[in-house]
Design a protein around this nucleic acid. Structure first.
Ligand SMILES: [Zn+2]
Ligand SMILES: [Zn+2]
Ligand SMILES: [Zn+2]
Ligand SMILES: [Zn+2]
Lengths: 138, 138
DNA sequence: TCTGTTGTGTTACACTATAACGTATGCAAT
DNA sequence: ATTGCATACGTTATAGTGTAACACAACAGA
C-alpha cells in the first residue's frame, strides 16, 4: 500500500488497494481488463470489481483515466489535485505517461472557451508523441 | 499532421456518403452504432461498414472523433484542417459541439511539451461544460 | 489480359463497461 | 443488542464499442 501524497483520503479497501497497486507497479497505462488479469491471483474475479475500485480511486484523485486509450494510470503528480486541467503526455513508443501542468495553459483554455461563451466544467488534454528518451535524436 | 483541403478530396463512395450524411444531419455527436441505426434503411448492415467509412472520413478530415464520448462529428470548421490542434467544446446539456482554434493555445501546448522534452504528434483537447445557449444565466 | 489496389459484404469474435441482484460488513441511534 | 442505514463485495448476465479474417466486386494501369 504505497504511501502517497494525497494524505487526507480515507484508507483504501482491499479491492481498491489491489487495483491501485497494480497501477503503481505498471510502467504503462492499463485497461480495466489488464488490471483484472493482474489481480486475479489476489481474488478479484469480475470486471465490475475492478471498475468499482477504479471509480473510487478516480474520485479520490489517485488514478486518472486516459480517454484516448480507454486506460488508467496512477497519479504521478502531487500538484494535480489542485488543478482543473491536467495535460497527459503519452509516449507512443514506450507508453510512459507524464502529467504536465501549467497555469498559463489553463488560462488560455478558459479564455478560448469564454470567447465562445462556453463555461468549462472539465477538460481532457492528451498529447501523443515521443518522450525525452524515445525521441529520435535529442 | 498533414494539411488537406476539403475540396481536393476524392469523391465519397456510397457508404462514406451515407455515414457522412448521417453525421451532418445530426445535431449531436453519434456513436458508430448510432450511425449504423441511421443507415440500415440504406443498405448498410454491419458495424465494420460504418467503421471503414469513418476511417476514411477521418483521414480526409471531414469527420472528427471525440475520444471522451466514443463518438463522431462532422467537421464544422473550414479552418481546422490547417491546424494541429482542435479544441472541442462539448455541451453537456444539449450535446452541441463547437470546434475552437487558437494559435496561442497551440503554442502554449507545444511550449509545455517542449519543457518536458516531449515531441507532440497529435493532441486531443476536449472541454465539457455548457454552451452559450445552455449556461445558467444568458 | 493481368495485376494490384480499393471498396464492399458477411460472420465471428475481442474488448470495454454497466445492470440487476443478493450478501456481508461496519457503524450510529435507539 | 437490535434496528436501520451506508458502503463494499461477489456473481451472472447483458449492453456497447471495435477488429480479425475471409471472400467478392470494381477499377486503374502495365
Ligand atoms: Zn495526477
Ligand atoms: Zn518513450
Ligand atoms: Zn473540423
Ligand atoms: Zn448547450
Amino acid at each position: 500500500m504505497s504511501a502517497h501524497i494525497h494524505a487526507e483520503q480515507p484508507a483504501l479497501t482491499k479491492n481498491q488497494s489491489l487495483v491501485y497497486d497494480a497501477l503503481t507497479r505498471s510502467k504503462a497505462p492499463l485497461s480495466a481488463y489488464a488490471i483484472l488479469d493482474g489481480v486475479r491471483e489476489h481474488g478479484i474475479r469480475a470486471p465490475l470489481q475492478v471498475y468499482r475500485a477504479l471509480d473510487k480511486l478516480l474520485e479520490m484523485g489517485l488514478v486518472h483515466r486516459l480517454e484516448s486509450l480507454n486506460s488508467f494510470v496512477a497519479c504521478s503528480n502531487s500538484e494535480c489535485e489542485a488543478r482543473e486541467t491536467i495535460v497527459f503526455a503519452i509516449c507512443e513508443k514506450c507508453s510512459k505517461v507524464s502529467e504536465l501542468a501549467d497555469d498559463r495553459l489553463e488560462a488560455q483554455l478558459n479564455a478560448l472557451a469564454s470567447a465562445d461563451h462556453f463555461s468549462v466544467h472539465a477538460a481532457t488534454v492528451e498529447l501523443r508523441g515521443f518522450c525525452k528518451q524515445c525521441r529520435p535524436t535529442g
